[in-house]
Design a binder for these strands. Structure first.
Length: 419
RNA sequence: GCGAUCGUAGCUCAGUUGGUUAGAGCGCCGGUUUGUGGUACCGGAGGUCGCGGGUUCGAACCCCGUCGAUCGCCCCA
């Protein structure tokens, strides 16, 4: 006998309550995006490698070491998508969706990054995603964030706060970056090894370093606010004002930066409050939803300048905060306690299902154990078909007095077996 | 890429300083009850102790390697 192959590291087989919670997240997202009139888009799971390499930034970890890239039979380098935004942008340009701009899009599905798996992080993971393309006004940021906030609320997630920052426009960001490099270079020898690396590759990231050696210099580091142009300042004020008007709570996070090169202006993450139940469930992978404005991305793919803003959220991480949700209790359990009654039981379960009840038939294994099995499934209504003293008997028991459709179920049962 | 912890039945786990035939609970299968209701009792199947080497009279247990998992760092959803 050959050995059973193992699943690929970092992939998951999701089943049971976890799978129900996963579906609950997706269904809730689909419902809410309709309320905001976002349109659905489906995209390829893989693209030419350059789609990601050019848009995300060559020096980012995602591009430099986390992509699942391979050559197809024609020798072309392809990559399993590590995020949605680059592929959506490519589709926007390929298909001339400028004609629909500004266009509000959502999608969800699997993404791939070659990383070491840990709690809340996988090599194949799943996100829900929302983008507004072709809208440069701060109102777009507000609408997008308000939707994100509503998705989380309707998932029943609490103890999570929107952390908001601005990276300014391109000039503001570059001036700030230069000032940060200067600031940290002066104390380079006292920084952590990681941050000495970051100084060259991605100095903004030093700001949210967890290392104490770095944190003492973060407080005195130059702030983006000192470099914001008047327009950039006004843009951010319009976003925060709009969020206040929409009733979305937020907090300013001056050191929040996003990892990818294409972000400008608004950057945000929804993060569990310290010490909250949500924080405990997530472990160290704490960001559940993140995104921002990426006004420069289309140009990097050869398109015309096109403002856009978007976010993505990890379905697995959201599902961890929705434990037990999406699982429906069994409404009708039907036991055929005698082989002679299996036909009647099968008919009954079909009737209930056609009437919109979820129902399960127990008609296999030892006839004596079927009633027990049905009861252990914890149904709201339990129906048994049996033969006693040569007579056919059928009984209905309502196990749950709170069950709303009990009377309806009893009427259907009586309608067939009125005796 | 780096670090820590852990791999025993389908699942959750015991297993003493290394010592006969590796256990329990749950689940699964079968049996017992003639009962308007049962979550009871009895029995059974199921394990190359992740895999490969080594030490030893003897290894689930000690050593080395390897694979896998979990958690953390980096990074990120």
């Amino acid at each position: 006998m050959s050995k059973t192959p193992q699943a690929i590291r970092g992939t998951q087989d999701i089943f049971g309550p976890d799978a129900e919670a996963f579906a609950f997240v997706v269904e809730t997202f689909e419902r809410v995006r309709r309320l905001y009139r976002f349109r659905r888009v489906e995209m390829p799971v893989f693209e030419k490698t350059e789609v990601f390499a050019r848009s995300i930034g060559e020096t980012t970890d995602i591009v430099s070491k986390e992509m699942y890239s391979f050559e197809d039979r024609g020798g072309e380098s392809l990559t399993l998508r590590p995020e949605f935004t680059a592929g959506i942008s490519r589709a926007f340009l390929s298909n001339g969706w400028q004609q629909y701009a500004p266009v509000k899009l959502t999608t969800h599905g699997p993404l791939f990054r070659y990383e070491r798996p840990q709690k809340g992080r996988y090599r194949q993971f799943h996100q829900i995603d929302a983008e507004i393309i072709g809208a440069g006004e701060p109102q777009a940021d507000v609408e997008l964030l308000t939707m994100a906030d509503q998705v989380l609320k309707e998932l029943g997630i609490t103890g999570v706060t929107l952390h908001l920052n601005t990276l300014g426009d391109g000039d503001s960001r570059e001036a700030w970056r230069a000032a940060l490099v200067e600031h940290f270079r002066a104390v380079k020898d006292e920084l952590s090894e990681d941050s000495q690396e970051r100084l060259e590759k991605n100095p903004l990231r030093i700001l949210d370093s967890k290392d104490r050696r770095d944190q003492q210099f973060v407080g005195t580091a130059p702030k983006i606010d000192q470099f914001l142009s008047g327009d950039a300042r006004a843009f951010f004020d319009a976003v925060t004002g709009g969020l206040d008007a929409a009733g979305v709570k937020w907090t300013r996070a001056e050191s929040l930066v996003r990892g990818l090169d294409y972000y400008r202006h608004t950057a945000f993450e929804f993060i569990p409050d310290e010490g909250s139940e949500a924080a405990g469930k997530l472990g160290s992978q704490s960001t559940i939803l993140g995104g921002g404005r990426y006004d420069g991305l289309m140009e990097s793919l050869g398109g015309a300048p096109t403002p856009a803003v978007g976010w993505a959220a990890g379905i697995e991480r959201l599902a961890m905060l929705c434990e037990g949700k999406g699982t429906e209790r069994l409404e009708i359990a039907i036991a055929a306690e005698n082989a002679e009654r299996e036909g009647d039981a099968a008919e009954m379960v079909a009737i209930f299902r056609r009437q919109g009840f979820n129902a399960e038939l127990f008609a296999t294994g030892s006839p004596r154990k079927r009633f027990d099995k049905a009861r252990k499934a914890d149904p709201a209504v339990l129906i048994s078909f049996d033969v006693r003293d040569g007579q056919h008997t059928q009984t209905l028991t309502s196990a749950d007095s709170d069950y709303a459709r009990a009377a309806e179920a009893e009427a259907i049962f009586a309608g067939r077996w009125n005796g």
